[in-house]
Design a protein around this nucleic acid. Structure first.
Lengths: 344, 344
DNA sequence: CTGAAAGCGCTAACAA
DNA sequence: TTGTTAGCGCTTTCAG
């Protein structure tokens, strides 16, 4: 650890470590990788020398010789409209998990498109890829299929064949939201969800949420749906359109973290106190749920769990534990009711 | 480009390209790097072969031999409370700029701390570092100083010595906000800004915004400040505390993109129509400013410009165009008034 | 203007 | 349990 003696010292290499420890250079490598048994005594000496010299293996050399970069490529659409900020939670967790497994994360924007994916593959920069925020019909998905490299997709594209997909289970969430409101005695339910965003096909998660809600509502409740952008004006219009279609609507399911608090405010402004006059269930992250506990039931989104599943699936592919193949993993959103207790 | 013939083909190397083009392997390298003159004829042949074979240089080898990774390390605090989502705009732009300069971006979380910085340096994974979202007193800053590697910080720490810092000019924004409201005939101004977030010292940008506002208000207006978290309840309390301190307050400066629309809604709920009864100036991003043009004056934050400045500074350090040294670059937020015209 | 050849610092056979 | 050695695919002198 100590930066000893002489000035202008170059970075120590594994050869320096070997010399200091009085072993061969390959032994140093084996101590590092653990790919063959090392005597306790030798290991101690090597590890001592490593600490002594502050040795950090050179990543380029490791990659070149080992044909493994220990890097995960993460492709994110920065342009996309709604809920990009929701992506941050995924990203942070992915980075954390990667580090725990001695990997790093390389960031690429979706602007690079399919070509970006091939570039990453061919340059040998990444051992595997995660595509975030994949929509119903996504050009990146075409490229990902048969890219011939470990790859996991976050989101549910229409055609998942040959792909490993992970996402939050919005369909179940839609069902749970309706059940919760029906359970509170409501039979007219307003649905506020993110508007379709054009370019990349309808937002798959909106469609799934609505489908789940509809299936669950059948025979039990009437659904009035409206979609909105996450700004106040758009949300107000959505709420108003629901209330004008069914003025007796006293139950709302709001699908979008950033929309929940505005909708609560909008309802109050219409003279409807959430938790008293109207029942509101938010499909949102923990923070939003927590600070509105008295007004809100919630289906708590846990993006960290999605990240964990995705990384797990990816690592399985990388070290061949599991073959690549069509695969779908959906992470449920636990129900938290106004009392604060989890129901599910 | 075409994946020709034989099955099980390994990735083409520069040697394959050389063979196909009938030149030496070093010539291929020189065509790629442009580090020495190449005859038109030779260049054509080599580039043809590259396209033909779909050759992509192996990044590990390039890094090892060239002692340049062509990767920029980006350290982000994912835990941080407020306005993390604001970071996304910076990140997307950084990634885009990096690509244009044939670089990639490696993501690390601030959880790795100072040790993470040394790791990146010693592993040779990055040619330079950008630390995002740096606060007044930030442990990463200590480590960054004298890391001996090109490094740029986004944010303004208390002690900037030896550091290259870039940020939005919140101090000027505070001043401009006050001037704008004074110009609209107001002399009591409510300031709503992000609350201090404890751990890492007061949020430097809040302090700077308030300082700028105070300097600008001197003799011209009275300031009533309140800080808030970005949720509706906290913002409502902040607005109410201002209104109860000065019930005649009819001017508000709101510093935080995610707070602007809630504050507009809160004011309306208090019977004060923004743009009519009260003047509101938001320090916010373009989207928020645009969709509230009729109710709001705005100081439009341009994180992309900060990213551009930061990358520029970093590349200067990397290729030695500019020495490392204390340096501060502040990016102004242009004024957009209700008419839609930029004043600044 | 171009080629030949020596590494960059590691991993992983192969050999003991 | 350890050492020896041959590369990994580039960049970059040094020669021509």
């Amino acid at each position: 650890m100590v930066e000893s003696g002489l000035a202008g010292r170059r970075k120590p290499t594994s050869a320096d470590v070997a010399r200091a420890a009085g072993v061969s250079q390959s032994t140093v490598s084996y101590v590092l990788t653990g790919k063959r048994p090392i005597s306790e005594e030798t290991r101690r000496r090597v590890e001592g020398a490593i600490a002594e010299l502050g040795f950090v293996p050179n990543s380029g050399a490791r990659t070149l010789a080992g044909r493994r970069s220990h890097v995960i490529g993460l492709m994110i659409p920065f342009r996309a409209g709604v809920e990009i900020s929701a992506n941050l939670a995924f990203v942070g967790e992915i980075a954390a998990i990667a580090r725990k497994a001695d990997h790093d994360v390389l960031l690429v924007t979706s602007d690079e498109g399919p070509a970006g994916l091939s570039r990453l593959r061919d340059s040998g920069m990444c051992d595997g890829l995660i595509l975030m925020d994949v929509e119903a019909r996504d050009p990146r998905v075409e490229a990902a299929r048969g890219l011939g490299v470990p790859c996991v997709v976050i989101g549910v594209p229409d055609d998942r064949s040959g792909l490993s997909c992970v996402d939050l289970d919005f369909e179940a969430a839609g069902g749970d939201a309706v059940s919760l409101l029906v359970g509170r005695g409501r039979d007219v339910i307003g649905l506020v969800s993110p508007g379709p965003h054009g370019e990349r096909g309808e937002m798959s998660f909106t469609r799934r949420f609505v489908a789940g809600a509809e299936a669950s509502a059948r025979d039990r409740a009437e659904l009035v749906a409206a979609s909105a952008d996450p700004d106040f004006g758009s949300l107000a219009r959505a709420v108003d359109s629901i209330l004008s279609a069914r003025p007796d609507c006293r139950a709302f399911a709001v699908h979008m973290s950033s929309a929940v608090e505005p909708v609560l405010a909008i309802l109050r402004a219409r003279g409807l106190e959430p938790g008293v006059d109207v029942d509101v269930v938010g499909v949102c992250d923990e923070d939003v749920a927590a600070r509105n506990r008295t007004a809100l039931d919630a289906l708590v989104l846990q993006p960290e769990r999605v990240s964990a599943e995705a990384m797990d699936a990816l690592f399985c592919q990388i070290d061949g534990t599991r073959a690549v193949g069509t695969r779908l993993e959906l992470v449920a959103a636990p129900v938290v009711t106004r009392g604060g207790a989890a129901l599910s």
